[in-house]
Structures are given as structure tokens and as C-alpha cells.
């Protein structure tokens, strides 16, 4: 019998308890143990970005993160960014509007990256968006539309902040 450890993970505002081997990655914990399959496994070696999640608001590659490393941290996955009333996040809505995906497999990672990219202030120009979204591969080739979607969502966020101020 392999040794397991007990983990309490705070994911999308909810506490999850699980017993896993210490070598289980955050990605496998989400997909294989917690039925949170929105986060995708594209390469399992930190090259494609499909597994991008947020830990304490910052983007991480969950395939290169052990589940045991993120105890006590705030984890957000694609399942956690939709509004409580089911409203899509502005980035999600912009992805649909601009057709920023085809097969959809890289999409959760793209969206998590985009949300962080805007929050980081790296969505100021198309060139900047391209650069800061380049850790997320899309083999269907939706890049033009991804840039358009991130640009629009970023502009809407800025506009709203100005209105609030």
C-alpha cells in the first residue's frame, strides 16, 4: 500500500478534503480526485498552458504544482470564475462572441490566463496581449480571436473601473 497524505484544499471558495499520494499534482488532484475536469491536461510537463489555474490570484501551471504545495492557498479553476447566478465572466463571454476557440480543449487555460493577464495589467495593446498569452498554446489556431476577446474584456474592465471611480 502506498502512503497517502491528507490535504484540505480551498478551491473556488469551497473546502475540499482528500487523501492522495504526496506525488499527486494539483492537476491530477482536480481531475482525478475532485471531478473538477474543466482544467485540462495537454502535456503534463509545463509546456502548453492548458492546465492554467490561479493560486492566490496568480496563474500557475497545475501540472507542475504538487497538490500538497497549495494547502492553505486560494485556488481558482475555470469552474470558479462564473458568477453565482450563472452569468459568464466577461472574458468567457468575449471568448464566445469572438469565436476564440474551436475544439475548446485549451480554452479553460486560455481564459484563466486571460483573466490574470488583464489583472496583471498586461493587456494594454495587441502586442502585449500576444506576448503575455503566449504560454497558452492553441493548435486550432484561434489566436487572432483570443487577442480580440482579451482586448475587449480588458477594455470593458477598464471602463467599469472608471465608472466606479
Amino acid at each position: 500500500m502506498t502512503r497517502t497524505i491528507h490535504l484540505s484544499l480551498d478551491i473556488n471558495g469551497r473546502r475540499h478534503e482528500l487523501d492522495v499520494e504526496p506525488r499527486v499534482t494539483l492537476l491530477d488532484a482536480l481531475r482525478e480526485h475532485l471531478a473538477l475536469t474543466g482544467t485540462k491536461k495537454g502535456c503534463d510537463q509545463g509546456q502548453c498552458g492548458a492546465c492554467t489555474c490561479h493560486v492566490d490570484g496568480k496563474r500557475v501551471l497545475s501540472c507542475l504544482t504538487l497538490a500538497a504545495q497549495v494547502e492553505g492557498r486560494e485556488i481558482t479553476t475555470i469552474e470558479g470564475i462564473t458568477g453565482e447566478n450563472g452569468d459568464l465572466h466577461p472574458v468567457q463571454a468575449a471568448f464566445i462572441e469572438h469565436d476564440a476557440f474551436q475544439c475548446g480543449y485549451c480554452t479553460p487555460g486560455q481564459i484563466m490566463s486571460a483573466v490574470a493577464c488583464i489583472r496583471e495589467g498586461h493587456a494594454g495593446s495587441d502586442e502585449e496581449i500576444r506576448e503575455y498569452m503566449s504560454g497558452n498554446l492553441c493548435r486550432c489556431g484561434a489566436y487572432n480571436s483570443i487577442v480580440a476577446a482579451v482586448r475587449e474584456a480588458a477594455q470593458a474592465t477598464v471602463k467599469e473601473k472608471m465608472e466606479v471611480a
Partner: peptide, 21 residues
Amino acid sequence: QTRFEGSLKVTGAATYALEYP
């Protein structure tokens, strides 16, 4: 028309082969 299954894909609710319980 925008992508019919779009909301499933942007929310992570579209289920791919290895994701069936």
C-alpha cells in the same frame, strides 16, 4: 451564429473522453 456549444467550452463543462466519471 456563435458557437452552439460555446458556453460549455468556456465554463469547463464540456466533457472530453478521459473526464467521464
